[in-house]
Amino acid sequence: MFPTHCNVLNYFLKRFFVPIKGGVQSSRPQPQVIIPSAAFAGAIISFVLCPSELVKCRMQIQGTDSLVPKCSGYSSSLDCALKTIKSDGVTGAFRGGSTTFLRESIGNAVFFSVYEYVRYYMHLQLKSGSSDHNNLVDMGIGILSGGLGGVAFWSTVLPLDVAKTIIQTAPDKSSLTNPFQVLNSIYRMSGLRGCYTGLGPTILRAFPANAAAIVTWEVAMKLLGIKNN
């Protein structure tokens, strides 16, 4: 998933955390606002993402020769969800929930910190320069800030995502569910590289996907007449 799915929630949470001095909100990024609002938004959205990603991961490895044990007998995503609940109960759909919680909380704090600071300083440079500040420039800033935010997100939390996938696709109910124990096991077998399995394709996807999502978000905000400080 991409961290930009938290945009709306994060936008409103920032209004709760933002300090107001003299009746005016500061336009400069403030870590004491960005980090808790983004982390809280990620924590909330993790409860939606966990069961949906569990189904996605189990469907993806089904019928493959992956080292991860096969999941068999799923005819559709709905069938996978229903069979998971039938065999493991409702809590089974939230297997890997703590790992998803950590990934989204930490990842979104990183994403929105990078996004806000890159956006702020690029706008600052343009204001001090002679360049005309137009819609095309705004789009360019959105592409760079959103793309770099996405790269920062996945560079930080990819090991947690690797652990989450292993936890969610393990067929044995008694398998490890502590992400740090899973990562320790991976590290002992494959080193740091094993913890960052799939980093290349993930980064290649992260930049354009998050850049497009942020530009779409900012255009929508502008069309709705909502100021995005």
Rank of each mutant, 00 (worst) to 15 (best):
F2N: 15
C6R: 00
K14M: 13
F16N: 03
F17Q: 04
F17A: 14
I20L: 10
I20T: 15
G22P: 14
G23N: 10
V24H: 13
Q25W: 04
R28A: 14
P29L: 05
Q30I: 03
P31A: 13
P36G: 12
P36Q: 07
A39R: 01
A43Y: 06
C50R: 00
C50V: 01
L54G: 01
M59K: 04
G63H: 13
T64A: 10
P69C: 09
K70I: 09
S72G: 05
S75P: 01
S75M: 11
S77P: 08
A81H: 03
A81W: 14
A81D: 04
T84R: 02
G89Y: 10
F94R: 00
T100A: 09
L102Y: 08
L102R: 03
F112E: 01
S113M: 11
R119S: 15
Y121I: 07
H123I: 02
L124Q: 13
Q125S: 13
S131F: 09
D132S: 15
D132E: 14
N134F: 07
M139C: 13
G140W: 10
G140N: 09
S155D: 01
P159F: 03
K164H: 11
T165E: 02
I167Q: 03
I167L: 08
T169I: 03
A170C: 14
P179T: 03
F180Y: 14
L183Q: 05
N184E: 10
R188Y: 04
M189S: 13
G191A: 07
G194Y: 06
C195R: 04
Y196G: 00
L204Y: 09
L204D: 09
A212F: 13
W217Y: 15
W217E: 08
M221Q: 15
L224T: 01
G225E: 12
I226C: 04
N228R: 12
N228G: 00
N228C: 06
